[in-house]
Every structure is written in C-alpha cells, then in structure tokens.
Amino acid sequence: MRLKLLLTSARVWQFPRGMASMTSKGTLAPASILAESWSIAAEGYDEIFVPRFKPWTDNALALLGSTEFKLPAGDVLVPTCGPGHELPLVAELLKNRNVRGTDLAPGMIDVAQKRCEGNPRLSCAVEDAMAPSGEYAALFSVFGLQQLPDHAQAIQAWTRCLKIGGVAVVIYWPMGTGVEKRGPWAHWGRLLRAALGDGARRGVQGWEDALPSAIESAGGEVLFSHPLKYRIECRALRRNQLQRATRHRRDVGTVIASARWRGTYWFICAQGRTRHSCSMP
C-alpha cells in the first residue's frame, strides 16, 4: 500500500508505504500533494513560519517540561516535525532521552536531518503521522494535527503510541472562526470559500469536538485543553518583504520571541513592551 515516487526537477523523493492510498477526508489536498508541497516549502517555512510560531512552541515546551508530569522512561516522538527546529529544544529540555522527529514531507526531513547531525540523541525519518511506529514516553506536536486527514484517528494513534503514563502535548489550529473572526487568515478563508465553496474546507466539520472521546477510547485521558492566543505582526505585505518580517507579542508569561528584519534581530519580551535590537553579522 505504500510506495510512491515523486519526481521533481531537483531530486527523487520516495514516500513511505501507505501514503499513496491515504484518503484526504475533509482536507483540501491529498497526502501526496501535501508531502510534495511541504517538501518544496520546507526551507521557506523554516525561515518564515518557525520564528512566527515560536511563542506557541515555547508554550508547548514549557508544558512538556512541567514537573507535574512524571514521565515514564523512554524516548520522545515529534510527529509532523517539519524542519526539525523543535528536536534540539526537546532534547535540551528532557535530558537523557532520545528525540525522534517524523514528517510526511521528505524535503522537511532533509532540513531536519541537518539539525540532527552531531547529536546522537536526535533522529528523524519520513513517516506518516497517522501511523507512528514505536512506543514513547512523550509526544510533542505543534501545528501538525490540523493538517492530517483524519484528526480523531490521528489522536488515537498518538495516544496508543505512548507508554502507560506517557504524556502528549499537542497544539493545533482550530477550524473556521476558532482561529480568528477577523484578520488576514479569516479574510483569506472567506476568499477561498467564495472561490471554491466546500472545496475550501480543511477538515471535517466538528472534528475538534471528537478529540477528547477519541483519546479516551484509545486509553488516554485529557489533562487539559484551552485556547492559546499570541500576536503576529508582519511588517509588510509585499512578498519579498513578508518573507523577512515577523514579530511576536506574547499575551501572558515571559517567553522571548525573536524575528529577523532587514539584518536586524529583534527580541520582543513579554507583553511586547520591551524591545532590544542588535545588528547581526
């Protein structure tokens, strides 16, 4: 069931088994297109979106490192790891544990592999997050779940790949107005719905409501679930400028975010009130 070769001008990517026949239930694009798309977009995503989403990543890391969780012995899985930026962060947080990242897109794993080099505790592989292999003490995923073709099935698989007592920290984008009622993403969504109708839908209606029962049916228990809002500020809308402009403001807490803008690194502190900048070499 699993073999698909995707030819591009630059390389040949071999997909893992099962992906070619994966259905695209409720998603805008089938898995083969997603894998190709994210492979092409990998380096740009790493440059633009990784810093933009850093506040959410930092929050997830803080949760994973919380002392209230008594994790069993074992490794950590980072499904939908993208360019692997979280892998060294998780390894630094949970010392003496191996961290394994997986992603559907070979291009993403190419980038992630560079981050794994030189650290024997890190590894990454092309793997379908709908069917993770192995057993883990913890699972960490930021902004991957909403892209999967069957969210309830995915969260069940993620629950089952945990050891007894193992903990998962998952952050995802909810659908529709759950993300934002106004703003550019909502605006974009309205344009797509006008152009594509139901074809613009990214997920089965109400899939989020099914997650808790899916976790429980797989032997898990939800410890907590809550919204998490941060500010994203793009400095410009023109394409070449947009790719260099991100800033974050944290609503609560003390995490510092950084972003690159015209050769300058900006460090924005909590509540976005204190800023320091320094020129980079």
């Binding site: 007592g165 952050i171 934002e180």
Partner: peptide, 12 residues
C-alpha cells in the same frame, strides 16, 4: 492579527 490556537495535553 491575534490567531488563537488550542492546546491539548493528554496522558495514556
């Protein structure tokens, strides 16, 4: 803009 994500923490 201020997009809202969701955090889900669960245990086996």
């Amino acid at each position: 803009h201020d997009p809202t994500a969701r955090v889900l923490v669960f245990r086996r």
